[in-house]
Computed example of a mutant assay.
Amino acid sequence: MRIHHDWKALPLDARGASVAMGNFDGVHLGHRSVIDAARAACDAPLGVITFEPHPRQFFAGDGPAFRLMNAESRANRLARLGVDHLYELPFDAVLAGFTPEDFAREVLVGGLGIRHVTVGADFCFGRQRSGSAQTLTQLGAELGFGVTVAPLIGDGAVEYSSTAIRQALAQGRTRDAERMLGHWHRIDGEVLHGDKRGRDLGYPTANMAVEGLHLPQLGVYAVLVDVLTGPDRGSYKGVASLGVRPMFGVNRPNLEVHIFDFNADLYGQHLSVALVEYLRPEARFDSLDALVAQMDRDSQSAREILATR
């Protein structure tokens, strides 16, 4: 998959795609239906148009973190779906100020030269979200590109949405989130240097930042781990703690991942960590021995849960 960070001066072979357009936070089953419709719309390379930062971040940057995935994680997921071109457009004051007509004419036609665009039924675009899917259909007819409006989907009980997935994760309901996502919720990122306490306790961990992401329920999880870079690239099983480490007085959340039967140095490598099952909340223990005993129990529980994965 090729990633383009602007709509201007694109090479000729990056133009003329059939694109799905939206924020695609989580790349859930509703998003995948939009992407599948774009794939089927015409005989053209498959593209995805999305925005970075997320428009909600641009307009309310000091609000609580809400994103299910960062740009790296979203790109990894879209690549797995067979997307040829990811147009990760910079969402800035210029783009925010475009009317729907400006956006269609300048970006979709003039910049990307799209053949077809597919959006969800609830899609809005343009200054102050003044354009709808119906507006886009009218503009496509005027400007010469096709438009498909994909219906919203769900399972009868709930409509698949990023909001519903955030709610499930905030309550530790990883399997409900997986049902709506079509895949396990993952946290992707670089392994950072930590304080190495886990190694001293017999549980070395790979530490990852979670700033800017919606936090699932804090606590301990059984996890599947993909090492994406470096000599130890591959898929592993493990247990992870998402939280503020109350035993050690740390108040900034992070993700600490212990990979079973693994002893390599992962600093600077990139991981993708799937939260498979919530085991327990964070806790403060009376002693390090009590902490290690609980870590032993957590690891055993995680091994049993992941035995068939």
Results as ranks from 00 to 15, higher is better:
207 N>G: 05
247 M>R: 08
283 A>N: 02
163 T>I: 08
183 H>E: 13
201 L>P: 00
255 L>H: 05
308 T>A: 11
254 N>K: 03
254 N>R: 07
305 I>G: 00
274 A>V: 04
62 D>Y: 06
136 L>P: 01
130 S>W: 06
296 D>R: 15
23 N>M: 08
304 E>Q: 15
148 T>E: 11
246 P>I: 01
152 L>V: 11
48 V>D: 01
201 L>I: 00
215 L>A: 07
226 D>A: 12
231 P>Y: 04
170 A>L: 09
43 D>M: 06
251 N>Y: 00
264 A>G: 00
48 V>S: 02
298 D>P: 13
33 S>C: 09
46 L>T: 01
179 R>H: 14
187 I>E: 09
85 H>L: 07
1 M>E: 06
120 G>K: 01
205 T>Q: 06
125 F>P: 08
67 R>Q: 10
148 T>Q: 13
187 I>H: 05
232 D>N: 11
108 L>T: 01
190 E>R: 15
35 I>K: 13
7 W>N: 04
213 L>K: 02
285 F>T: 03
71 A>V: 11
13 D>H: 14
179 R>K: 13
241 S>F: 12
28 H>G: 00
101 E>C: 05
10 L>D: 01
238 G>P: 11
218 L>Q: 12
128 Q>A: 15
183 H>K: 01
49 I>L: 14
25 D>F: 07
246 P>S: 02
208 M>W: 07
201 L>S: 01
214 H>K: 00
150 A>N: 14
16 G>N: 11
66 F>E: 04
300 Q>R: 11
108 L>A: 05
184 W>P: 07
140 G>N: 03
297 R>M: 13
240 A>E: 08
171 Q>S: 13
137 T>M: 09
44 A>I: 04
237 K>I: 04
158 V>W: 00
271 L>P: 14
129 R>C: 14
59 F>I: 04
210 V>D: 05
156 G>W: 08
19 V>N: 07
86 L>A: 02
56 R>Y: 08
215 L>M: 12
105 R>D: 12
139 L>M: 09
165 I>K: 10
216 P>W: 10
178 E>W: 08
209 A>Q: 05
289 D>I: 06
154 G>P: 06
202 G>T: 03
55 P>R: 03
174 T>N: 10
138 Q>W: 01
37 A>H: 10
177 A>G: 14
253 P>Y: 03
171 Q>D: 10
54 H>D: 06
221 Y>D: 01
81 L>W: 07
4 H>Q: 14
143 L>S: 12
283 A>I: 00
21 M>E: 04
275 L>S: 06
19 V>G: 03
191 V>T: 08
28 H>K: 01
86 L>I: 14
92 D>T: 13
39 R>S: 02
160 Y>R: 00
46 L>Q: 00
13 D>C: 06
36 D>N: 08
35 I>W: 10
297 R>E: 15
136 L>K: 00
38 A>C: 09
